[in-house]
Amino acid sequence: MSQDVTQLVLPPGDHAALKVAVKALESPNLAAKIADYAGIPVNRVLNLLPKAANRQLSGLVRSAVLTGLEVAVDTLNEKPPPSPAVGFSSFLAGVTGGVSGLFGFGALTVELPLTTTLMLRAIAEIAQHEGEDLSKLEARLACLEVFAYGTKKTSEGVDVGYYAARALISKYTSDAAAYILERGAVDASAPVISNLVSEIVSRFGLVVSDKVAAGAVPIIGAVFGATVNVIFMDHFQKMAKGHFTLRRLERVHGSATVRHHYAEIANDLAVPRGVATASTAR
């Protein structure tokens, strides 16, 4: 007879780690964080998004995600430092953002893929610190998945929680991993690869739009490049820490148990995400 997950109690340390993860994964989006930093209403940032979310930006985001996929497949199994160098990664992102800020939107062609790669490597360090084996393709692609967890809304505007988003994105990741292992390379034209990239782009692009739109807010614009990139990097590092904390706890306690406690904590924090009824994720 299977054990009732509602009766399972997590050790205090694991419960505390889970609570931190829930707060990170169900936290306000990037636009809200930027608005909070600038001391302006969040709607002022959000109202600028349609100007930023254009076809050119979508193409830049897709290129950045493809670059990230290639990095994830080819180089993320290199030995990382003993502990995540998150501060240094944020500093580098700030530098690239500051340079980009001098040249405007056109610099995103160079800056966005570079910043995405820096973030992906920081995410990989966090993953390994949480016990992930980056010699496995599945773990490396799980690093790329983090870019899909940076927003609560899909391209159709549906508000979803972490587990609902993970259930969907993990299906695409699994299909892509099987294809890459069989072929030994990333073929961007293959449907399974295109599906994975498109799903990440549809979510990551919304966060990048927040980042670009922030440059149109006067109080942010003066320090747009460096400051917003640091907020951008910090946002995804927190997503990564939450994501890989959950994966670590699931390896120890089982997915069902962790999801049950996740839902309870989210409810206690008054974050109505519907995680208790989300589709099963790996």
Results as ranks from 00 to 15, higher is better:
179 Y>Q: 13
179 Y>R: 15
179 Y>K: 15
179 Y>A: 12
182 E>A: 15
182 E>Q: 15
182 E>S: 15
183 R>H: 15
189 S>K: 15
190 A>L: 05
193 I>N: 06
194 S>Y: 00
195 N>V: 07
196 L>D: 02
196 L>Q: 03
198 S>V: 01
199 E>G: 05
201 V>Y: 01
205 G>L: 11
205 G>S: 13
209 S>T: 15
210 D>M: 00
211 K>T: 02
213 A>W: 01
213 A>R: 02
214 A>H: 01
215 G>F: 00
215 G>C: 01
216 A>P: 00
217 V>T: 06
217 V>I: 12
218 P>E: 11
219 I>M: 11
220 I>S: 04
222 A>Y: 07
223 V>N: 13
224 F>T: 04
224 F>V: 04
225 G>C: 03
227 T>P: 00
229 N>V: 01
229 N>W: 02
229 N>F: 05
229 N>G: 01
229 N>Q: 04
230 V>P: 02
230 V>T: 11
232 F>G: 00
233 M>V: 13
234 D>W: 01
235 H>D: 10
235 H>E: 12
236 F>S: 03
237 Q>F: 07
237 Q>S: 06
237 Q>C: 10
237 Q>Y: 02
239 M>H: 06
239 M>F: 01
240 A>M: 09
241 K>V: 07
241 K>I: 10
243 H>F: 13
244 F>C: 06
245 T>G: 04
245 T>N: 08
246 L>E: 08
246 L>G: 01
247 R>V: 11
